[in-house]
Design a protein around this nucleic acid. Sequence first.
DNA 1: TCAATCCAAATTGTCGACAATGATGCTCCC
DNA 2: GGGAGCATCATTGTCGACAATTTGGATTGA
Lengths: 227, 227
Amino acid sequence: MFNLEIDNIKASRTAADRVFSALQDAIVRGDIPPGSRVGETELAERFGTSRGPLREALRRLESRRLVERTPHVGIRIASLCHEALIQIYYVREALEGMAARLAAVHMSPEEIDGLRNLLAAHEQDEALKADMAYFQQEGDLDFHYRVIQGSHNTALTELLIGELYHRIRMYRYQISASAKRPQKAFGEHQRIVEAIEAHDGDLAEMLMRRHISSARQNIEQHQRDNL
Amino acid sequence: MFNLEIDNIKASRTAADRVFSALQDAIVRGDIPPGSRVGETELAERFGTSRGPLREALRRLESRRLVERTPHVGIRIASLCHEALIQIYYVREALEGMAARLAAVHMSPEEIDGLRNLLAAHEQDEALKADMAYFQQEGDLDFHYRVIQGSHNTALTELLIGELYHRIRMYRYQISASAKRPQKAFGEHQRIVEAIEAHDGDLAEMLMRRHISSARQNIEQHQRDNL
DNA sequence: TCAATCCAAATTGTCGACAATGATGCTCCC
DNA sequence: GGGAGCATCATTGTCGACAATTTGGATTGA
């Protein structure tokens, strides 16, 4: 239903790609505790492969900052400190604001229809209120994915989806019961879509920046509460 | 003199890191023709190592979009088309504008002094006019590096230096005689530093965005001329 | 008792060989 | 003569074994 596995689709060609996807999911979902040390042999047998493909997967995960390596010592699963997450949100504000502006200019009518339908689906699902927290989170991600891809700027898309989003998702699972604000976020999504429909780039950027800024402030508030 | 090898310093620990740095330099400098196919065995003996470390280096270069891999077929050196370069410059405009804003707020007096000294050195070197084109380019890079790091936002720094700059450098070597505008760029640098010194984030962002926008327009003009 | 040194165990880094897959050229049939 | 199918070949993917390095503890000396 949702189109979340952007770069995991073609991953099943070789064993190295398979273990890369599996390991990334395991890290992002928190199956492997963040900050923990893991041995290569252990991981290799866990994923049913040899150390060769595993090491290639590790290199790629290192580039994505999901694991940290120190030569001759080993690897440890990255743990996103709160400060780093806030920094990422500031970068998101700049990049996704730009994405929204570009989307307002470059999105095709079909893509805009898709966005509208997505929001409509969210509205219906919201009525169900079944497993809503998780659902809202994934739906939120899907909304942002579409706007980003609507920018039709490959460099921008690769940066946001390929570099930042995995780390954000990892953090969401880490503090599993993250503060949510579904109704408010849903309304903000709707206004962003309206701005995109009107091809109003300035407004779309401003609304998206506010949207992400609100999310960041929400996280910061949550951090203060849990001190 | 210049601090260009940000992430190549720690690279000499293992053979895999060494071949990674060497291969990256070879690609960025154009020693290996962009778009060309290369075999693993060939590369391995070229860098005096086995295929194991080489493959790990390739995986990391793939994450940086410097090489493209297709399973069971091989690798080819990435070739940056003009459109992709322009897209990167738009992203740079957003990210480095943000970096300049943050630098105006967070840069320490010592860092600001360093920036000033750098510009002074450029001014003197400009008088020499010795090998100026290359010099200006590297100096320009160094200036931007410092502003970016002055933002004190790790996520932002990693994105710009770790992801985008290598590709930009590769392109500079590809069209080796890129259009230059040293005097103009130098003046823009000075004004940006003045804004940072005055801790005027708004102005610093605006000037940096204009600076990069000018560079982009310059490239676009150069492209039109060479059609 | 504390510190420095050395040894050993475990883990990572590297290498060469084997298996699997895609590409190239040939042959054969229509 | 042209195209489809097949066999060979080169290249990549994978694996197991060996070498190099770090870490941790044990031992010895002050």
